[in-house]
Design a protein around this nucleic acid. Structure first.
Length: 438
RNA sequence: GUGGGUAUAGCUCAGAUGGUUAGAGCGCCAGAUUGUGGCUCUGGAGGCCGUGGGUUCAAGUCCCACUAUCCACCCCA
C-alpha cells in the first residue's frame, strides 16, 4: 500500500474551473477579445516572468509587498503583477519598430501575493486595452475607450451598466485651490466615499487634518449632481482659475462630447466626481464601470489616462489611455450573483459517435471525420462497455446527438442518429444526418 | 501586516450537556435478461473525525499548540 499519496489541492487564491465553467469562461474571454479586435487593437503577449529590475523600476509600497519575486542562479526575477508595466517595457524596448498611436490589447494572467479573500485572487486574468501615443495623444481616444467598454459589456449581454467618468486634473486643480497637498490620501477617501458613507469619510478627512470648512467644500464639490451637461456647467461656474482645473474641464467636456459621437447611449455613462482610482499614475481621464443592479460587485472595468507610460524605461514621452477588465474576479462575482447561464454543456462536442463494438471502430472514425469536415464537433467513444454506458457518457456531458454505428449501419452505409433530448432516433445517410444536426 | 471564524466521506453538512460498530443528502460504482441514456428501485465502495500534545476510566466532542482554510480591515482587478 502506497501511503505516499499527495493530497491534490491548489494554493489558495488560484482559481480553477470545472468543464462547464471553463467553457463559459472561455466564451466570455472570446467575446472580449473579439470586441477588442473589432476596434483594431493589436494582440500582445509578453513573458509572465520579467526581470525584477524592470517590474520594480517604479518602486513603491504595495507592489514591493505583493510581488512574487525569486532568484534562479544569479537572475533576480518576478511574476508580473499587471499588464501595464510589461506594456511600458515593451513599448520602450521596441519603440522604433512600432507605429503610433500604438493600439494593443493584452489578455493574460497576472500575479499578486495578497492575503486571500473572497473574490480576490493571487492569479487572475486581466484584459487590457491601451492606446499609446508618441509624444502626444488626442483626448478623443479617451472617449473611444468609453465606446470600447460599452461595446464589450454590450457584447457580453449586459444592458444595465454605467461607465463612470472623471478627470484627475479637475480633482487636482480643485484640491490645489484649497491648498491641499497630500491629494493621494484625499483621493483615496473620496474614492471609497460611497462604500464607507459620508460620515466615515468626514471623520477620515478630519483625521487627515482638514478644517470643517475645507471638508465642506470638498463634499459640496463631489456632490455636484445633474446631467453630464449640468455637471460640466456647475464645474465651470466654480470659477476656478488654476490652469490644471481649466485643463481638466476642457478635457472632460471634449470626452463627453465625443462619447456621444461614438454612439454610446446616454444611460450607460456619466460624470462622477467621486471616481478617483487608487492608482497614482493616472493623470487625466479616469473610468470605472458598474453593473447597475449589482453595485456590490464593484467596478468591473477601470482605467484611465496616464501622461507618461514608460518614463522608467525611456526618455521618450509616451502618453496613453486604457482600461482593464479583471476577468477572474468578474467571472467569480457574476457566478456568485447567479448571472451566468446555468444550463450550459460540459463539453463542446455536438455528436458522439458510438461504435457498437470494436469491429465498427473503423467506420465510426470515418463518420466522425466526415462530421468534422462539415464543422460539427465530434468524438468517438472507444471504450468497450455496454451501450447504456456509452449513451450515459453523452448524457452526462450534455452531448446533444449520438450517432450509433453497428453492423446494420455499416452494411447499409448509413448512420443511426439519436437526439438525446427527445430520444428520437432514425437511420439516415451521413449527409442527411449532418443536415439535421446543423 | 491587524482582527475574527472554521477544520467529520469526493462535495454540502448532522453528530445537546464527553460513553460502545460515526450518520444523512448529493456524487461515484454495480445490478433490475444479451443494440439504447435521462426517471425510479435495490445493493456497494468510500472516514487515523486537520496534525501533535494534554485532561479523563473514556475524547469527533473539553483544554493548549501547530498547520490549513475562510471572512473582515489595509490595498486592489
Amino acid at each position: 500500500m502506497s501511503k505516499d499519496i499527495v493530497k491534490p489541492s491548489t494554493l489558495p487564491g488560484f482559481m480553477e474551473l470545472l468543464p462547464k465553467d471553463q467553457i463559459l469562461f472561455n466564451k466570455i474571454l472570446d467575446t472580449i477579445r473579439k470586441t477588442y479586435e473589432e476596434f483594431g487593437f493589436i494582440p500582445l503577449d509578453t513573458p509572465l516572468i520579467e526581470k525584477s529590475e524592470v517590474l520594480l523600476a517604479k518602486g513603491g509600497g504595495e507592489t514591493e509587498k505583493q510581488i512574487y519575486r525569486f532568484t534562479k542562479g544569479d537572475t533576480d526575477m518576478a511574476l508580473r503583477f499587471d499588464l501595464t508595466v510589461p506594456l511600458a517595457r515593451y513599448v520602450a524596448q521596441h519603440f522604433s519598430d512600432l507605429t503610433f498611436p500604438f493600439r494593443r490589447y493584452h489578455i493574460g494572467k497576472v500575479y499578486r501575493g495578497e492575503k486571500s479573500q473572497r473574490g480576490r485572487f493571487r492569479e487572475f486574468y486581466q484584459c487590457d486595452v491601451d492606446i499609446i501615443g508618441n509624444g502626444k495623444l488626442s483626448v478623443v481616444y479617451d472617449a473611444e475607450i468609453v465606446s470600447i467598454i460599452y461595446a464589450t459589456f454590450n457584447n457580453l449581454g449586459f444592458k444595465d451598466f454605467t461607465i463612470k467618468i472623471n478627470n484627475r486634473k479637475v480633482l487636482n486643480g480643485f484640491f490645489a485651490s484649497l491648498n491641499i497637498e497630500n491629494t493621494v490620501d484625499v483621493l483615496r477617501t473620496i474614492d471609497k466615499l460611497e462604500k464607507i458613507g459620508e460620515k466615515s469619510a468626514i471623520s477620515e478627512l478630519k483625521g487627515l487634518g482638514f478644517s470643517e470648512d475645507t471638508i465642506g467644500k470638498i463634499l459640496n464639490f463631489i456632490k455636484i449632481q445633474g446631467t453630464n451637461q449640468e455637471k460640466l456647467q456647475a464645474l465651470k461656474s466654480l470659477d476656478m482659475h488654476t490652469e490644471v482645473f481649466q485643463n481638466g474641464i476642457d478635457e472632460l467636456t471634449t470626452v463627453i462630447e465625443y462619447i456621444n459621437s461614438f454612439g454610446v447611449p446616454e444611460k450607460n455613462y456619466m460624470i462622477d466626481l467621486t471616481i478617483a482610482r487608487g492608482l497614482d499614475y493616472y493623470t487625466g481621464t479616469v473610468y470605472e464601470t458598474f453593473l447597475d443592479n449589482y453595485p456590490e460587485i464593484g467596478s468591473v472595468c477601470s482605467g484611465g489616462r496616464y501622461e507618461n507610460l514608460a518614463e522608467y524605461y525611456t526618455t521618450q514621452k509616451l502618453p496613453g489611455v486604457g482600461v482593464s477588465i479583471g476577468l477572474t474576479r468578474l467571472f467569480y462575482q457574476l457566478k456568485e450573483a447567479g448571472l451566468l447561464e446555468s444550463d450550459t454543456p460540459s463539453t463542446l462536442t455536438k455528436v458522439l459517435v458510438v461504435p457498437m463494438d470494436a469491429t465498427c471502430n473503423e467506420y465510426s472514425i470515418k463518420v466522425a471525420n466526415t462530421l468534422r469536415e462539415s464543422g460539427i464537433i465530434s468524438e468517438v467513444y472507444f471504450e468497450e462497455v455496454k451501450v447504456g454506458k456509452k449513451l450515459n457518457y453523452a448524457n452526462k456531458l450534455d452531448i446533444p446527438y449520438v450517432v450509433l454505428i453497428g453492423e446494420d449501419e455499416i452494411q447499409r452505409q448509413m448512420v443511426s442518429l439519436k437526439n438525446m433530448k427527445t430520444g428520437y432516433q432514425e437511420t439516415l445517410a451521413i449527409d442527411e444526418a449532418i443536415k439535421s444536426v446543423k
